[in-house]
Simulated scan of single mutants.
Amino acid sequence: MIRLAFLSPHLSFGSRNQINYNFNQLNSKIKPGAYYNGNYSIEYNPVGTFNFGIVGYYLKQINQDSKNGNYRYFRDNYDIVDTREQVLGLGKALALLLVVAFL
Rank of each mutant, 00 (worst) to 15 (best):
G56C: 04
Y36H: 14
L88G: 02
L7W: 09
D82Q: 09
N45C: 10
V100Y: 15
L59R: 07
F13C: 03
P9I: 10
F52W: 13
L96R: 12
Y36R: 06
D76K: 14
Y78H: 08
S41I: 00
R72T: 05
F102H: 04
L7V: 12
P9A: 08
Q86G: 14
L88Q: 04
M1I: 04
S28T: 15
G48A: 13
R84K: 15
G69A: 06
G89A: 14
G89K: 11
N27E: 11
D76R: 10
Y73F: 15
N45D: 05
Y44M: 02
A101C: 09
Y58V: 05
L96S: 02
S41T: 05
N63L: 07
G33C: 10
A5P: 00
R75L: 03
R72D: 06
L88K: 03
V99H: 13
L26V: 08
Y21C: 01
F23V: 00
G14C: 04
D65V: 00
I2T: 13
R3C: 02
E85R: 12
G91L: 07
Y73N: 07
L4T: 15
F23Y: 02
T49E: 12
K31H: 04
P46F: 11
S8W: 03
I80N: 13
N27H: 13
Q25C: 09
G56K: 01
G48T: 09
L103C: 12
I30Y: 01
G56D: 04
H10Y: 09
E43I: 02
H10E: 14
N77W: 02
R72A: 03
I2M: 10
P9F: 09
K60Q: 11
R3P: 03
S66A: 15
N45V: 06
R75D: 00
A93I: 02
G89V: 08
R75T: 04
I80D: 09
Q18T: 14
N70D: 14
D65E: 02
F52H: 11
L96I: 14
L59T: 01
R72C: 02
R3Y: 10
V47K: 08
F102S: 04
Y71P: 00
R3S: 13
P9S: 06
N22A: 06
N51C: 06
V47F: 13
Y57S: 02
F74A: 01
F74W: 03
I42W: 03
N68R: 13
I42K: 01
G91Q: 06
R3I: 11
Y73L: 11
K67Q: 12
N20M: 10
L59F: 07
N37L: 08
N63K: 04
P46K: 05
D79W: 09
V100S: 02
Q61Y: 01
F102N: 05
K67G: 00
I19H: 07
G14E: 05
G14M: 01
A5D: 07
I54A: 11
V81L: 12
Y40D: 00
Y58Q: 07
G48V: 03
I2H: 09
G14I: 00
Y78K: 04
A5E: 08
D79R: 15
G48N: 14
R16H: 12
S15F: 09
G33P: 01
I62V: 10
T49H: 10
A93W: 00
V81D: 10
Q64S: 11
R75G: 00
K29W: 06
